[in-house]
């Protein structure tokens, strides 16, 4: 681990010790508490980075970036989102899918999708989009951690700060590099897929739960010491409220569904009300 990561950790531990010496309880750091709500405050602009913990977690990191974007767009009902997808990232992760975005609460007419060829183009397009003041800019770059340096991130961070936009840079290739990365971003998250709770022997397989992420906050400017950069935390995203919840995963009702139902053809013109009712019953 490099200096930047370890210094965050040391600050965090010092704060904790200071709290213990003062005789109080250590400050709880749970999603929904003060620090987390400040971190996920959608009115905050600036540059954020999302890196997967392992190469296979790239899709989870992308989902998390999208969840953050949704939160912010909730605040700006007319705002546009610019999504920049590099060819290589699109090959590995696929392109944003309109129907899925729509179902998650993003009308497709608010999205502009830019496809770039090289990491340099991606960074340029992201800077342009941030400068123009788009509500949210998500960029997915196949750049290696070494190609994305302090200068590049500083340009992006400045552009975001000046226009008040929120930029989210996704680096799917730099899996596991989050603690080593040196950049001028405001926040940096390391994301992993959140494993479902173990199933009891013989129990039927449940339905997939709501979108959940396992993350750690590697960097949060302005909130130094509030998060342990090494502690993983599970959070669940609620599309309807555009809100993160930190509730323990297995306590959620979604996984308690015992039976399975066939997906109803409810996106067809002839929406079957019976299918809805069946779903509600289940």
């Amino acid at each position: 681990m490099s200096r930047s990561g370890s210094s965050e950790r040391i600050v965090f531990l010092r704060r904790r010790i200071a709290g213990l010496e003062a005789g109080g309880e250590p400050p709880p750091a749970r999603a929904g508490d003060d620090a987390f709500s400040r971190l996920f405050n959608p009115s905050r602009g600036g540059l954020g980075e999302a890196l997967p913990a392992r190469p296979t977690d790239a899709a989870a990191a992308a989902g998390f970036a999208f969840a953050l974007a949704l939160r912010r767009l909730r605040l700006r009902p007319q705002g546009a989102i610019v999504w920049i997808a590099e060819d290589m990232a699109a090959r590995e992760l696929g392109l944003p899918y309109g129907r899925g975005l729509q179902a998650a609460g993003l009308p497709p007419e608010r999205l502009v999708l830019a496809r770039t060829r090289r990491p340099r183009e991606t960074l340029w397009a992201m800077e342009e989009a941030l400068k123009s003041g788009a509500a949210v800019v998500i960029a997915e770059s196949w750049a290696e951690a070494s190609a994305y340096d302090l200068t590049a991130s500083r340009r992006l961070a400045l552009a975001a700060r000046r226009s008040g936009s929120a930029g989210l840079l996704l680096l799917p290739r730099a899996a596991g590099a989050a603690p080593r990365l040196a950049s001028a971003a405001e926040t940096r998250f390391e994301i992993a897929a959140c494993a479902p709770p173990p199933r009891a022997e013989g129990a039927p397989r449940p339905l997939p739960g709501p979108p959940a992420f396992r993350l750690r906050v590697v960097k949060a400017r302005g909130l130094i010491g509030a998060f342990d950069p090494q502690a993983w935390r599970d959070i669940v995203f609620d599309h309807e409220e555009a809100e993160f919840h930190g509730a323990p995963f297995h306590a959620l009702p979604f996984h308690a569904l015992p039976g399975r139902v066939l997906a109803a053809p409810s996106d067809r013109p002839a929406l079957a009300p019976a299918a809805r009712a069946r779903r509600a019953l289940a």
């Binding site: 899709a59 999208f66 992760l93 944003p96 899925g100 975005l101 729509q102 179902a103 109803a264 809805r276």
Partner: peptide, 9 residues
């Protein structure tokens, strides 16, 4: 109750 659609295709 609509069937799931992925975010990325």
């Amino acid at each position: 109750g609509a069937p799931a659609r992925p975010l990325r295709l």
